[in-house]
Every structure is written in structure tokens, then in C-alpha cells.
Simulated scan of single mutants.
Amino acid sequence: MPASPLPGKVLVTGSAGFIGFHLTRLLLDEGWTVLGYDGMTPYYDVTLKRRRNQMLLQHPNFRVVEAMLEDAESLDNAADAFEPDIILHLAAQAGVRYSLEEPKAYIESNVIGTFHVMEVARRHSVKHLLMASTSSVYGGNEEMPFLETDKADLPLTIYAATKKAAEAMGHSYAHLWNLPVTMFRFFTVYGPWGRPDMALYKFVDAILNGRPIDLYNNGCLYRDFTYVTDLVRGIRLLIDAIPEKPPRPADVDPGDSLSPVAPFRVVNIGNGEKTSLLNFVAAIEASLGVKAVRNLMPMQKGDVEATWADSSLLSRLTGFRPNTDVGEGVAKFVAWYRDYYGK
């Protein structure tokens, strides 16, 4: 495990988002100075984003710029005034299903917005650019657990395609400008302060309000559920694992996704377990003390039956492996939800 550097200045895009909020809190607790950059888009309840933002603003080492990634001038001005050492790019148009309805939003945010972030990283010669990707890039792959060295050329949605495009652009910037870039692929992230469009949030809300829950593919789905504090701990540790271009292509270790021609790497951050959706629902029912009314549905367009991460590379690089039990993580979300909504 690499030695941790002294805290410096970090630009976090999407700081008011679910993952960005938890990551920013962790960095501030460690003594980093953080500039948040968030568009406060209305994809889901902006009130939730503003509550997260208000909590972050209580810390003296945090300030935020509210603007869109597509607004290159605002992003440039914010970065030029702040002069970041590290950039953590989390902002994106999220949601697999929404990409079927509004694909243009994904191109604008996830491709054009990411290009603007990479330009900032290049101009400021940051020590490390870390950018969020997704397990969705594995697309039609059927061999599991997913390895970073597996091909990921069969995206099933525009969301996945834009994230794969961001990975490809990141590699080109790493090669052209010797810019260290790490892409981290999220799996199914859950936990307190989660997004209302995510399964756990929707299921808890429906069950407590007496509505049925929709289980696609008749509930025969499997996901690598990753608790949010495990995820952000993994991201934090990856800051220190700065990729370096190998002296020769043949010098890349087997099993490492390090590029043979650039300081670029892809890393899975997942719990390393394949959990059935039905068992996930059972954990929710146990935490709530209420049985769900189940509405069995056919498979959704663009969805996949299973995701499952091999997290051994993360462990090799950082000495850390996510390990929060699903039952424990769900109980923590339920406790937060009841407190937040007074239910």
C-alpha cells in the first residue's frame, strides 16, 4: 500500500451528489481543502442535494461553485482560482433507465463535460485525475466476476456508452500529456443519502407507503451491492496509487489494467459478491419489519441479469477491499431514511 501524501487541494465534481457528498466529507475529515463543483440538476429532488451541500458548507475547508460541466468558462475560472492538486470527477448524468428517454443529456454531461474536466487537468498538470466509470461498461459480458482486463466493447445503453467513451478519452489524455489517470468502475452503490431513483430508496419508500415494488426479470437479478462508505474509502486510497507509464509494454504485471503506453489504469470498486435481488429485498423487509407486495415484471430494455466485481486489483493497489454486509448496509440506510423523513 502506497504512503499517503500530505493533504492538498482537491476539485470534486458532483460534490452534492450521493457519492460526491460522502467522498467530500471523508476528504474534509482528513484535512484536505475541497472545491466542490455541482450543477444541482433537477434529475432528482434538488432539496436532497442542497441538504447535502449545506452540511458540507459547515466545514471551513470547503466551498462550492454551482455551474454545469458543459459551461467550460465557469469550470475554467473555478479551477484557475483554486489551482487543484488532484481532480476527482464524479459529476455525470446518472441512471441507466433515464438514458432511454433523454440520451442527449448523457452526451452533454458525460462526454462534453468530461472533456472539459480533462482539459482543466491538462492545463493545471494535476498530480492525479480520477474519474468515475461504471460496471455498466461490461455490458454484454457474461463471464464473471468482471475483471478490469476483460473487454468492455458491448455497451447496452447510451449511459454505458458515454462512460466507456470517457474511459477512452482518459486514456488518450494520459498518453498525449503524460497525465496520470485512474478510472474507477462503480457497481451497485447504496447507503444513506442515496438517490431517490435507486432501487433501495424506491423499495423502502414503496413498502412504507403500502405500494408494491417492481421486480424486473421476475426478481431473478444479481448485483454486486457496494456500501457507499466502502466505495469512497476505495476512491480515497486510489488517490495515492498514481499510475506510471511502464518503461516497456512487457513490464505490465499480469492482472493489472495499467496501460502499456500511458499512465492510465482502470479499477473495479465492488464488494466482490453476487447477491440476488430477492435476498436484497429480504434484507429490506427485515430492517423495516414489513413485508413487501411484489410486482413481478419482465426484463427491462438495456438491463443485465448480473454484475459481479473482481476487486483483487483494488486490494493489490491499496490494501483495501469493500466488505460491508448487505444486511448491515441496508439497516443503516433504513435508519437514515426514517430519521430524514420522520417515518
Rank of each mutant, 00 (worst) to 15 (best):
P263Y: 00
T307F: 15
G289S: 06
P260C: 02
V290M: 11
G302F: 14
G255D: 10
G219N: 09
L238A: 04
G270N: 09
R265F: 02
N217T: 03
G302A: 07
N218G: 08
E273L: 09
S287K: 01
P249Q: 13
N218K: 11
V261F: 08
A292K: 03
N218T: 01
E305H: 08
P246R: 00
A283I: 00
P260H: 06
A292R: 11
E244N: 03
I239L: 14
L215V: 04
T229Y: 14
A282G: 12
M297L: 15
Y227E: 06
P246I: 00
P254N: 03
I235E: 08
P247N: 14
D240A: 14
V266N: 09
V267F: 02
G270L: 07
A262W: 07
E273R: 15
Y227V: 01
Y216L: 03
F280T: 09
P254F: 01
L296Q: 06
P260Q: 07
A250P: 08
P246W: 00
D256E: 09
Y222K: 14
E273V: 10
G302E: 10
L237Q: 04
P263N: 04
P247H: 13
D251V: 00
F225A: 03
P246C: 05
V267A: 02
P243C: 11
D251A: 00
G272P: 04
E273C: 01
G234N: 04
I242W: 00
R233C: 08
C220D: 15
Y216N: 08
L238M: 04
I242E: 02
A250I: 05
K301A: 15
L278R: 13
K301P: 12
K274A: 10
K274P: 00
I284Q: 10
G272S: 00
A292H: 07
E244S: 08
L296D: 04
D230T: 12
R236K: 15
I242N: 00
A306H: 05
A306W: 09
N218M: 06
M299V: 08
L221F: 02
K291S: 15
K274T: 02
I239M: 13
P263I: 04
K291H: 11
N279F: 02
G219Q: 09
K291M: 05
V261E: 14
E305R: 15
L278D: 10
S257N: 11
L237F: 03
I242H: 00
T307M: 14
L221R: 14
A286S: 12
I239E: 13
V290W: 01
A282E: 15
A306I: 00
Y222E: 13
T226H: 05
V228I: 14
T229G: 00
G272V: 02
V281G: 10
N271F: 03
V304S: 11
D303S: 13
S287F: 06
L237P: 05
K301W: 10
G272E: 05
L221V: 13
I242T: 14
V261S: 13
R294F: 08
A282H: 12
G270Q: 03
A292E: 05
L237G: 07
L215Y: 05
L238R: 09
